[in-house]
Design a protein around this nucleic acid. Sequence first.
DNA 1: GAAACATATTAGTATTTTCTTGTATAAGCT
DNA 2: AGCTTATACAAGAAAATACTAATATGTTTC
Lengths: 119, 119
Amino acid sequence: MVQDTVADGATGDADACCTPLGDVDADAMAIDLQVLSAMGNDTRYELLRRIANADDGVCVCDLEAAVGVSQSAVSQALSRLYAAGLVTRRKEGSWRYYEPTETTVALLETLDDLRGTYE
Amino acid sequence: MVQDTVADGATGDADACCTPLGDVDADAMAIDLQVLSAMGNDTRYELLRRIANADDGVCVCDLEAAVGVSQSAVSQALSRLYAAGLVTRRKEGSWRYYEPTETTVALLETLDDLRGTYE
DNA sequence: GAAACATATTAGTATTTTCTTGTATAAGCT
DNA sequence: AGCTTATACAAGAAAATACTAATATGTTTC
């Protein structure tokens, strides 16, 4: 498997403190950044938490009421979460239900563990 | 333990599709957002990966060579990672060595697992 | 102590992001 | 078909972010 990497600038002679570092996988980086930057925003984080908290799908109208931004902003936020693979969406009549993906569940769980939520 | 929450706007009458959702813990949210938004940036993500890849501490000069931004930008990025609790720093002479925290290790590992890096 | 080096800080600018308003699409109801 | 509701899309304004350049601080070396 060919693996793109971000070039390591330090190809020259070894300086006093500087040992060359292992490069970072560019594909992995792109994917992770999409996920992290999608989650790392007030509105989207809160939407995601609420989606993850619900048992089987939340419709957009629920979410609109909960966060303090316009319908349009909620829609855009959800689209971005979807693009990042953090939610799935399913249409039911004229409603649209969002559910968390495994990625979302795993990451939120990790964050909870790290904070020591239940200590 | 008192637990701040973000108010759930949907306190009114129950609409067609809308069931009220569980609120989101505001403290947890603040902490998570600091972590996520710190990681969710090109420069900082790459710095963090390189710090995590190294065995025992990376000095700033190594990092500067690796990412394509100014010394100042690197310093600012590292400060932000530090503020978010993602790295520790230790001074050794005039160099400063950065190391990943448990949070960083855990999150990067989770991300790797989710991507299925080793499949 | 002065020069050179490693890193941090400040201030300003450029870029990116996020929101709002207005409009479009699509489904359900009468 | 026309009206209403649910959601998405587009364009632009406003806010937040990330960079650069310049300067400051602290360390080493001579």
